[in-house]
C-alpha cells in the first residue's frame, strides 16, 4: 500500500459519483464509507446486494448508483456475484461482448449478512477464488430492523434485544480473521472517518484479482445512540482508542495501517454512545470498563 499515489487528502477524487437523496438515516456511517468507496470504484461496477439497510438505496424507480445493481436475498449475495462474474467471463470468452463491457462485481452487505447468514456463501466464494470485491458496512447489529444484536455486536452494548443491565453478553466476532484464514487476495478494515486510509485500501484492492474483502465500521446514530453530526467524531474515536484497528491482510501477512501511538482511553469512545450509557450511569461499572480496556490493550500489546 506504500506505493499508493494517494498521499494526502487532496489526492482523493473531487467528483462524487453516488447520488444524494437516499432513504439512509442522517449521519449514516455506512453511507459515508460507501460514498468514498464508490468515488474510487466508479460506474463500471455491478453492486450485488443482500438484505440490509442499503437495500433501500435502490427503490423503484430510483437509484443513486451510476452503474448497475442486483438485489439478491440476505444469505446469498456472494453467490449472486458468482453468477454475474461467471456470466460476464463466459460472454467475453465466447466473444459475445467485448472486454470494454466488463464490470467489477461488488458485493454490498451489512454485518447481519456478513457475520451470520451469508458467511457460508462468502466462505465458499473465497474458496472458489471468485474475482470480486466484498464491502461489509458493519453497524454492529441488525440495523435495518431496529438494531437487534448480531454476530458483530460488541460486548456489553445495549441493543433492542439486549436491553438488560449488562447489555450484550457475547463478543464481537473476528470476521477479519475468519476471512483472512481463507487466504484470499486481500482483506482490510476501513472506516469512513479515515478517508485516506480507506482510499488507499480500495486502490490496493482494485489492483488485485480474486476475493478482496473490506469491512467498514459504520457508526450508526440511530442504533448506537448519538447525534448524526457526531458520526465522524465517533469514527475517529473508534480508531484513536484502538477499538477499531485499521489493518490489511495481503500475501499472508497482516499489516496495521494506522497504529495509534498514544491510544485514548476506551471510555472516551464508549461514553459518547447511548448503547454504553449503562456503564456510566447511574454509577460507573468500573469492572466492565477495566475489562473492556484490557481487551483492547491485550490486542495492541504485540503490535508494533
Amino acid at each position: 500500500m506504500n506505493e499508493s499515489h494517494l498521499r494526502r487528502m487532496k489526492d482523493l477524487p473531487s467528483t462524487h459519483l453516488l447520488g444524494a437523496g437516499t432513504p439512509m438515516c442522517a449521519g449514516c456511517g455506512g453511507l459515508q464509507a460507501l460514498h468514498e468507496i464508490y468515488d474510487l470504484l466508479g460506474a463500471k461496477t455491478v453492486f450485488v446486494n443482500a438484505a440490509g439497510c442499503m437495500t433501500l438505496l435502490s427503490v423503484y424507480p430510483f437509484t443513486p448508483f451510476r452503474g448497475s445493481w442486483l438485489y439478491t436475498a440476505m444469505a446469498s449475495a456472494p453467490a449472486g456475484a458468482q453468477g454475474v462474474r461467471d456470466a460476464l467471463d463466459i460472454l467475453i470468452q465466447k466473444r459475445r461482448i467485448g472486454r470494454e463491457e466488463d464490470l467489477e462485481t461488488v458485493v454490498l452487505t451489512g454485518d447481519g449478512a456478513a457475520y451470520g447468514m451469508g458467511l457460508s456463501a462468502t466462505s465458499a466464494a473465497i474458496e472458489r477464488n471468485l474475482d470480486f470485491l466484498y464491502i461489509c458496512y458493519d453497524n454492529e447489529g441488525y440495523g435495518n430492523t431496529g438494531q437487534q444484536y448480531s454476530g458483530a455486536t460488541p460486548h456489553a452494548a445495549k441493543t433492542s434485544t439486549s436491553t438488560g443491565p449488562s447489555g450484550y453478553a457475547g463478543d464481537k466476532k473476528d470476521l477479519f480473521a475468519i476471512w483472512a484464514a481463507h487466504r484470499p487476495a486481500y482483506v482490510a478494515t476501513v472506516i469512513g472517518a479515515e478517508p485516506l486510509d480507506l482510499a488507499r485500501k480500495i486502490e490496493a484492492a482494485k489492483q488485485l484479482r480474486g476475493p478482496r474483502l473490506i469491512i467498514a465500521l459504520a457508526p450508526c446514530p440511530v442504533g448506537w445512540g448519538y447525534s448524526p453530526e457526531e458520526t465522524v467524531n465517533v469514527g475517529k474515536l473508534a480508531v484513536k482508542t484502538g477499538i477499531w484497528p485499521l489493518k490489511e491482510y495481503i500475501d499472508g501477512h497482516v499489516i496495521h495501517t494506522k497504529v495509534p501511538r498514544s491510544r485514548l482511553p476506551v471510555e472516551d469512545y464508549l461514553k459518547v454512545q447511548n448503547r454504553f450509557a449503562h456503564l456510566f450511569t447511574p454509577q460507573r461499572d468500573e469492572a466492565m470498563l477495566v475489562s473492556l480496556q484490557t481487551k483492547v490493550d491485550d490486542y495492541w500489546k504485540n503490535i508494533a
Binding site: S58, Y60, L70, E100, E101, L103
Partner: peptide
C-alpha cells in the same frame, strides 16, 4: 448487465 448500459435489477418497491 453491461458497462455501456447500466441497469438496476430486482430493486425494492
Amino acid at each position: 448487465f453491461r458497462a455501456s448500459a447500466p441497469a438496476s435489477q430486482a430493486v425494492a418497491v
